[in-house]
């Protein structure tokens, strides 16, 4: 039995805020974490091991139990819908939204095409609204699609809206609000319940403190 908790952290967009949050919880993260290229980092004093993964893979590591818990954006959880994990806490960091955007002169058209990194979310959203659209899966720079005529709309993450503005796009509808979540493996949630509960309690305390600080 691996003692201690294995925590999957997403590289990229969420990483810095996640590390800062964990540090505020008193988790002694090694200083070289950000700079290092290592993918597995043990912090024996805190009985923690960090696994640095691609964000969309975090739920997979957790579902299979090679990580006990993970930090991951709700956007990934929605896209990887069928993952069987506990979604324990809303960490309130890396707040953004999944939105539909298009050029300002966009008008409904008979054969709509939507470009996105989130085909499942986009497809479910339009189906629920009774619209049949062609979903085009892209792996990045989704804003490009309407500019070059690949698609008439996009579904993507929007945080400040700056990228959209710079590319002359406007936000049409919000699909979902997104924050970072703490997820747990089904078995770890039981077999390591004390460690998982303790981490939850520490995170909750910090989140609550932050909320009261932010409130006017």
């Amino acid at each position: 039995m691996t003692e201690g908790l294995r925590v999957a952290l997403p590289k990229g967009r969420i990483f810095d805020e996640a590390v800062a949050l964990l540090r505020r919880c008193g988790v002694p993260l090694p200083a070289e974490l950000e700079a290092s290229r290592r993918l597995v980092l043990a912090v024996p004093d805190a009985a923690l091991t960090f696994i640095l993964a691609k964000p969309s893979d975090v739920p997979t590591y957790v579902e299979y139990g090679v990580a006990d818990v993970g930090l991951v954006g709700k956007d990934v959880l929605m896209e990887e819908e069928a993952r069987d994990v506990y979604e324990l806490l809303d960490l309130g960091i890396s707040r953004c939204r999944i939105a539909v955007a298009a050029k300002p002169d966009w008008r409904p058209c008979p054969a709509p095409r939507v470009a996105t990194k989130y085909p499942r979310i986009a497809s479910a959203y339009f189906r629920e609204r009774g619209q049949q659209v062609e979903i085009i899966k892209l792996n990045g720079s989704v804003e490009l699609a309407p500019l070059v005529g690949l698609a008439d709309r996009i579904v993507d993450i929007v945080s400040t809206g700056q990228t959209l503005r710079e590319n002359g796009l406007v936000e049409l509808e919000t699909i979902a609000e997104v924050t970072t979540r703490l997820i747990a493996n089904l078995v770890s949630y039981r077999m390591k319940s004390r460690a998982v509960d303790e981490l939850c309690a520490r995170l909750e305390a910090v989140i609550r403190r932050q909320r009261t600080e932010v409130a006017p």
Binding site: E63, G65, N185, M191
Partner: peptide, 11 residues
Amino acid sequence: FEGYAADHGFP
């Protein structure tokens, strides 16, 4: 009920 074993990620 569900049963779990240490070191196995699934029930």
